[in-house]
Design a protein around this nucleic acid. Sequence first.
DNA 1: GACTCGCCTTGATCGAGATCAAGGTTTTGC
DNA 2: GCAAAACCTTGATCTCGATCAAGGCGAGTC
Lengths: 237, 237
Amino acid sequence: MIARQDVQQADVPAICKSCEARQDGLCGAFNARQLTELARASSRHEVLAGAELPNDGTYSNLLSGVVKLTRNLSDGRQQIVGFHFAPDFLGRPFEAKRPIRAEALTNVALCSFPKAIIDRMANEMPELGRLLLKHALNELDEARDWMAALGRKTASEKVASFLLMVARNTDPAHSPANPISFDLPLTRTDIADFLGLTIETVSRELSRLRSDGTIRIVNKRQISLASIARLEERCGD
Amino acid sequence: MIARQDVQQADVPAICKSCEARQDGLCGAFNARQLTELARASSRHEVLAGAELPNDGTYSNLLSGVVKLTRNLSDGRQQIVGFHFAPDFLGRPFEAKRPIRAEALTNVALCSFPKAIIDRMANEMPELGRLLLKHALNELDEARDWMAALGRKTASEKVASFLLMVARNTDPAHSPANPISFDLPLTRTDIADFLGLTIETVSRELSRLRSDGTIRIVNKRQISLASIARLEERCGD
DNA sequence: GACTCGCCTTGATCGAGATCAAGGTTTTGC
DNA sequence: GCAAAACCTTGATCTCGATCAAGGCGAGTC
């Protein structure tokens, strides 16, 4: 699912076809004239797996890959507070001072827009402001769902919920009844830091799900689910 | 601090002086003509402690009181995913279908604006859209701070962080070195549901903080802190 | 091949916080 | 005022997930 070859063929200029075609991303809101202007100002670039994304106030469409957002306590304890899967939209226009870092989990391709241009266009076009707001509220809803998981779910419910989330982001249109298979773009350490568990507990819970037939672990990173419905029974909500 | 008498004297009409005076609320963004129009459309009302706030798409300034946002798992486990303290701004224009309920913890006074009017004004005035976005991003940052607490802090760090948050919202300008005292607007059950703990653990941690002199528990609901700095040492970040 | 290094799994034991239980205090209602 | 109910505290015990420990697997390197 994390299509590495997308990152290789990265010679699409300026505002890329993938942006224009995408309903979900920022570009859906613009008219043809604005898209032409954006094309001149935007830039496409790659970030390698493991590298930190710059927090420079630019807005970006995430064209391929997976990004994690982490927040650290002073003694090094780490919590992952969110993920971005392609084709999400990334942007933090205000208050970028919080101790939250964005890091590429896989190789990542971005189409970035300078803050100044987007801000000016948002002034001309209220529709764009509403789109940005809608994105922020979706992220807020997701954050609150995970708060409930972190505070009140058991370890096995957390792992089941996590697998469901990855499956849905990997293949959103998939039927709940059919088997589905995907690459986990995270190490066990990342999963643990997301779920507020240790790597040992994550590993044990995955083994338990494997031994009762809910999942198959092909490759450490490659998981296949017997059915989404089967996991939904175990995720606590 | 939760000024109950404010709720009693609730005969301010339409768009209230408290709204206009408030930097933080929605009204800061409007010009005089728009404020006059809003005055006709807005309504002030009260919600009693314990009652649920309607999720009807209206936007509101929270004039006094405290509101909790809760999310429940299917078997009744509850997680509090956020608070609103006066003078916060409340609003969920999109995707109100998530299983999140807003409930008044104290008596609450609201100044509400119909969604249709705000939406139209947001179209006329990009500044308003940016204000709404800024509020949503602040809430997102807070949610992520609490994700880190839920996932990675110990019980005593959670309780210390919680007391700090209430203290800061109660008297944001207070010096970190001086003592401060405030009403806890929550039961032990609410605190536990916010921190992902049980009421017994919350009670024990409060007792521990009392016995080592960090806090004084006057009245079950009335807490006084020796100093904010003292608590900050214990909150883990 | 064999060595190393990073990552994962599994087992044994421990401990923070949950659960169970009893009693205290504050509020409410008569 | 008293009784009942709601809420809070404290103690005893248990359990889930953390910690400690050992070894496996796979990729890269020599």
